[in-house]
Structures are given as C-alpha cells and as structure tokens.
C-alpha cells in the first residue's frame, strides 16, 4: 500500500555512476540542466542526447525506472507543448483555422521544449536513482561548507535533512500499520464525503503524531546520550574525498559543457 511510495527512488546497483562522489553528481546534474537551456540547433541536441544515452547505458538502472519520473509531469508537458505550438509567432504558417495558427517556429519550439523537459527529468533521475538521499545530503553539506563561515548553519540543516529523510520510510510504514490496525477495527478510510473522510482520519493521525513525537524524543535522548553536540569538530565515519574517477568525471562534464557552448557559439 503506502510503502510502495519510495522516496528518492534510489536503485541499488554496482555501476561507476553509483560509485561517484555525490558532489560530482550534484554538480553534474546542475551542468546538465544548464546545458539543456544553452544548446541550440540539431547538433547541440545530438550532443545532449548522446551524453544522456551514455549515462543511462553505464548506470545500470533499467530504463523503465528512468522514465517513471516523467509520469507525473505528462500534463505539464502537454500544456507546454500546446502553448508553444499555437502561440509562437512566425513567418512560415503551416496551419490556420480561426484564432489557431501553427507556425514552423511553433513546431520547432514545441519539439525542443518537450525534449528539454524530458531530458531534464531523465537526467536528474540519473542522479537520484544512483545516489542515496543520505549521500546527497552529505554531498550538499560538504559542498556548502564554505557558507558556514558566514554564519549559515550548514551542518545543522543537513543533519535535519538526513534525519527527516531517515524517518520518512519509518513513518510511512507506521502509517501503513496503524491504518491496517484501525481497518481491522472496522474503520473505513475510503468512503464517505470529504468531511466524513477527514473525520475518519483522526484514528490514524492521533496515534501517528504520538508515535512521531515519541520517536523524536527517543532519538534526541539517544543522540544526547552519545554526546552529540553539533557540527563543531565532528568527524565523519566515511568522509567524502575525491578519487581518480571523480576527477575523470569532472573532466568529462566540462568537456561536455564546453562542447555544448562551442556548438552554440560557432554554429
């Protein structure tokens, strides 16, 4: 039931992409997104496609997991495509009926917009599918470390993020169990009007809140018992450090970005 929702959809596998430092992947996702809005023309498009296909090939995640992320934004994509299709002014009119006009430029815009959105989702999926949420927060913490010099509580924020991430599956599981336990007592969470249904949530929400507070309390106690004092002077069990392949990946990323920019400027 509820447990089917996996957060951060991590897909375990043993690929070079999985092994990369999370900072590389964060930066890579950023570079790829930028490149999608920088490229122009068919050659830029080809380069972005080849790069993405290459990533999909080496990250060993089945293709259907990659495109899963597209499902929720299908409507958005359709709207974007339709607006681009009909509302782009242009010289070469392909179709005209009443207020509806389709121009060659509109077709082009719509097609590129669709490609951009698709690649954006699939590209970022490569990152989230190959990196656990905890690695991501770790990477984020380290990458944003310099900000702590100017008083941003980077460690506290990332700690909060990783605790929250850690608890989401637990709370989902708990919701599932409490829901079933109340259903075993004849509760009904599916039928009735909106108000009835909202009222029916009480037997679910009260125990859930109690348990969330209890868990938070236990965790705080356990952390304190182990002398947790925040970020100052705290070391990591597995400190992030760049390896050869990470530098290689950066090199690849910069060549890709350079290629995209070159194609835009010179063609």
């Amino acid at each position: 039931m509820l447990r089917d929702i996996t957060l951060g959809q991590y897909y375990p596998a043993d690929s070079p992409v999985h092994k990369l430092d999370p900072r590389v992947k964060l930066f890579g996702a950023l570079v790829y997104i930028v490149s999608l809005f920088v490229f122009r023309g068919i050659f830029g498009f080809l380069l972005a496609t080849i790069f993405l296909l290459f990533l999909i090939k080496i990250c060993q995640v089945p293709f259907r997991f990659m495109v899963k992320g597209l499902k929720p934004i299908v409507i958005l994509m359709v709207f974007t495509a339709v607006f681009n299709l009909f509302l782009t002014p242009g010289k070469q009119v392909l179709f005209h009926y009443g207020i509806l006009t389709i121009t060659m430029e509109g077709v082009k815009n719509a097609a590129f917009m669709l490609v951009r959105l698709t690649y954006l989702i699939v590209g970022t999926s490569v990152m989230t599918l190959t990196t656990t949420p905890n690695q991501l927060t770790d990477g984020l913490e380290k990458a944003l470390k310099p900000l702590s010099k100017v008083g941003v509580p980077v460690h506290a924020v990332s700690m909060m993020m990783s605790i929250a991430l850690r608890f989401i599956p637990i709370l989902i599981e708990e919701t599932d169990i409490i829901m079933k336990a109340q259903m075993a007592r004849g509760a009904d969470f599916e039928e009735g009007s909106l108000i009835v249904r909202a009222k029916n949530m009480i037997p679910l929400l009260v125990p859930l809140f109690i348990s969330a507070f209890r868990r938070a309390d236990d965790l705080a106690m356990a952390m304190e018992a182990r002398c947790y004092e925040g970020g100052e002077g705290r070391s990591k069990m597995r400190p992030l450090s760049y390896r050869r392949m990470d530098y290689g990946a950066y090199l690849l990323l910069f060549s890709y970005l350079g290629g995209i920019i070159a194609l835009r400027v010179f063609l």
């Binding site: 409490i178 336990a181 075993a184 004849g186 009904d188 125990p207």
Partner: peptide, 20 residues
C-alpha cells in the same frame, strides 16, 4: 471484506500504538 474484518479480529503487534 469489511464484515470479514470484524468476524476475524486481528490484534496487531504493539496494538497499544493504535489507541487514539
């Protein structure tokens, strides 16, 4: 199935967590 659930009563593990 709703009636079935009342005829076959199920007490979950740590059932005290469902009190509300």
């Amino acid at each position: 199935r709703k009636e079935l659930r009342t005829r076959v009563g199920l007490v979950f593990q740590y059932p005290e967590h469902q009190l509300f």
